[in-house]
């Protein structure tokens, strides 16, 4: 993945004189903030053999809450706290249906997607939250020792999840459930607890993403987040996390998100119309994963796996 990212960067730098500028790098990174956070949650969900297709709309719901707080009270700290909290709450709702109701995640979250969309409309009452005060923006777009707050937040989130995966039983349990839920249950893993917690974690991360969204765009419209879920899933599977569960790569997700955004940005810079962007996303998924699938079946790879 790293190779693919670097390759893309080199090609675009050659093709467009404006590509390899620091300003453009900042643009790409800024465009990736929400997707990096949501993708992290999605990585855990997929690794567990779950999925959440309503995640973008959940971000929209949290953004409404954050936006309301920002516009009503003006206290940015309250908004920062409320984002993850509301996200956790919605994660609980999703988890209650999927985990406690024992409904297949893909269909269950599809149903919830409809319900949440209606909720967004009802909450907004047909109006947008636009031109929100910039108190939150001022707080979250500052830099600490030259590094933007968003980068810190993302680094902390990834580090925390990494530690949980590698240094606590949670990680082992998660992957075990992803491999086989039945076997995990038989070996005494608290399957329901772990699955519930993962949906809540994903909710919290989505809540943080929503906070940054409001800070960046100062606007909440009806269609907010409608394309995010599929983008996140695409980025995560590009990063090498298995959708069947049992395998996950956090760093892969980072590169998956960056690769998507680098390509979207780079293609526009070399003059490809934006309508082609979904096509590129699709070809990328098929190309990368198809190549991987094909090379896995080569004798050499089998040999290597057998030794490893």
């Amino acid at each position: 993945m790293l190779v693919a990212c670097l390759l893309a960067i080199v090609i675009f730098s050659v093709a467009s004189p404006h590509y390899a500028t620091s300003g453009n790098a900042v643009t790409v990174l800024r465009n990736s903030v929400e997707l990096l956070l949501i993708g992290l949650g999605m990585t855990l969900l997929l690794a567990m053999g779950g999925i959440d297709v309503s995640i973008g709309i959940v971000m929209g719901l949290v953004a409404i809450a954050v936006g309301r707080i920002v516009s009503a009270d003006g206290s940015p700290f309250l908004a920062i706290i409320s984002g993850p909290l509301v996200g956790a709450l919605l994660g609980c709702v999703t988890a209650a249906v999927i985990v406690l109701g024992r409904v297949p995640a893909i269909v269950g979250t599809l149903g919830l997607l409809g319900v949440y969309r209606t909720a967004i409309f009802v909450l907004l009452g047909g109006q947008w939250l636009s031109g929100l005060p910039s108190s939150l923006t001022d707080l979250l777009s500052t830099t600490v020792i030259g590094i933007p707050v968003a980068a810190f937040a993302i680094a902390i989130a990834y580090l925390a999840v990494w530690l949980a995966l590698r240094r606590t039983p949670y990680g082992l349990h998660l992957l075990a459930i992803g491999n086989s839920e039945e076997k995990a249950r038989l070996s005494g893993i608290p399957v329901v607890k772990i699955r519930f917690a993962t949906f809540v974690i994903s909710g919290v991360l989505t809540g943080i993403a929503a906070t940054f969204y409001v800070a960046t765009y100062r606007n909440v419209e009806m269609t907010i987040g409608s394309t995010l879920a599929l983008d996140a899933i695409a980025a995560v599977i590009l990063g090498g996390t298995s959708i069947l569960g049992g395998r996950c790569s956090l760093i892969g997700t980072v590169f998956g998100v960056l690769l998507l955004r680098i390509l979207q940005n780079g293609l526009l810079l070399i003059g490809v119309p934006s309508l082609w962007q979904p096509v590129v996303t699709g070809v990328l998924i098929l190309g990368v994963l198809g190549f991987e699938a094909a090379s896995n079946r080569l004798p050499l790879a089998r040999f290597r796996r057998a030794r490893a």
Partner: peptide, 27 residues
């Protein structure tokens, strides 16, 4: 043929098919 998971394969072609339909006609 490639033994891709149906979810991944058709997610990829979803982006490609719907994207190509829009892009070649410009909408």
């Amino acid at each position: 043929g490639l033994a891709l998971l149906p979810f991944i394969a058709t997610l990829g072609t979803f982006f490609v098919y719907s994207g190509v339909a829009l892009a070649v006609t410009g909408g």
